[in-house]
Nucleic acid binder design. Structure first.
Lengths: 196, 196
DNA sequence: CGCCGGGGCGACCGATCGTGCTATTTTGAA
DNA sequence: TTCAAAATAGCACGATCGGTCGCCCCGGCG
């Protein structure tokens, strides 16, 4: 049996992710989030022991969303290039649909990169995990013989991240309709350079 | 003769850029900035008609810093690849020294990409200008015959931006010592692909 | 029936926000 | 030296921030 409180908490987190996606984790305000959920300020606050805990919970939810939407389905595709492509495709789609998840991490990372604290620490961990996951997916492509054996998985992860960062940047800030096409070209270019 | 007010205003802007570089443009607080400048809140406020005006002024100062540190010196180097390299080198150095300027634009862009208003509008203009400037610098390399005539200057600008975004990301958030080396490899890779 | 506990509300706290208004000090030219 | 103008301080305002408190409402259990 799911308690009523847990249901409310999930609704708060869902709304929290979407709000933070617009105003950032720091801009996430308890009062605004509460009215957005149809709750009173104290009613919402009772679910979390502090604002920091709320931020961490929102971040955790966003991470779970990203894994569920991008990484896990990608791991169900064949190893090597198809899997790398699956990650890219789903990642791009996440950005196009202006959904949260990937976006929130970029936002929070830039927001907190100079502000120490538990939220930043968690962000660093999550980012390292994602980096390692991409490098690992790339490595399977090497062991399958699809990618050059002297290719650097970490370099590929950084380059892919750069492509995605640029995509989000041009798509969201500049509303550049060509952003997706350019990101695809960059991605193909990356693949061309590492194929065996 | 420079009036005293102008001197103070410049000091405020200098401090404002450095503060915004840490906490973002939205996190820039008049009270905190005032005490950081050794002024009273109203004393500082008198120099600007509103907080938005202050943010715009800070942004303008950052843009001037970036142009002075990166673009203008680069334009003094020979056209083509050396000029592109000069931009890259100075840009990287800006990030390594953790100075403001280029960094502030990334931060503000991500912060405000979903929050309409005059500050965001200015950011979009500045970003488009920078994009166009890079593409133009690249074009001189084409007309000099150093780069392939079928290379896409806009694509190069996006790719370079992606490389720099990834560099800032890994360097500042993850404090990754290899960030610079990876950025350099990405850059060389970009150049290899467009050279005639 | 009474009781009990989780879930939520409303009022409230001290601090700080951006922003005006009015003094007061400082400055630079006459 | 005098004096207007420029620069800055003091103060107060309404709003909002994160956070705390006591109270109420309602469902399940004895």
């Amino acid at each position: 049996m799911v308690s009523k409180g847990a249901v409310t908490k999930q609704a708060i987190l869902r709304e929290g992710v979407e709000t933070a996606y617009r105003v950032g984790l720091g801009g996430l305000t308890i009062g605004v989030l509460a009215t957005a959920c149809g709750l009173s300020k104290s009613g919402l606050y009772a679910h979390f022991s502090s604002k920091t805990a709320l931020q961490l919970a929102v971040l955790d939810r966003a991470r779970a969303d990203y894994a569920e939407t991008v990484l896990i389905p990608a791991l169900a595709t064949p190893r090597g290039e198809p899997r790398v492509r699956a990650v890219f495709e789903r990642w791009i789609r996440l950005g196009l649909e202006r959904q949260a998840g990937g976006c929130l991490f970029v936002k929070a990372s830039v927001e907190l990169d100079e502000q120490p604290g538990p939220v930043r620490d968690q962000l660093v961990r999550d980012h390292r995990d994602l980096d390692e996951a991409i490098a690992q997916i790339f490595r399977t492509g090497i062991s399958e013989g699809q990618f050059r054996s002297d290719a650097d998985p970490d370099q590929f992860a950084v380059d892919l991240m750069g492509t995605m960062l640029a995509f989000y940047h041009y798509h969201r800030l500049l509303d550049d309709g060509a952003a997706e096409a350019r990101a695809r070209r960059s991605f193909e270019h990356l693949l061309d350079a590492v194929r065996a």
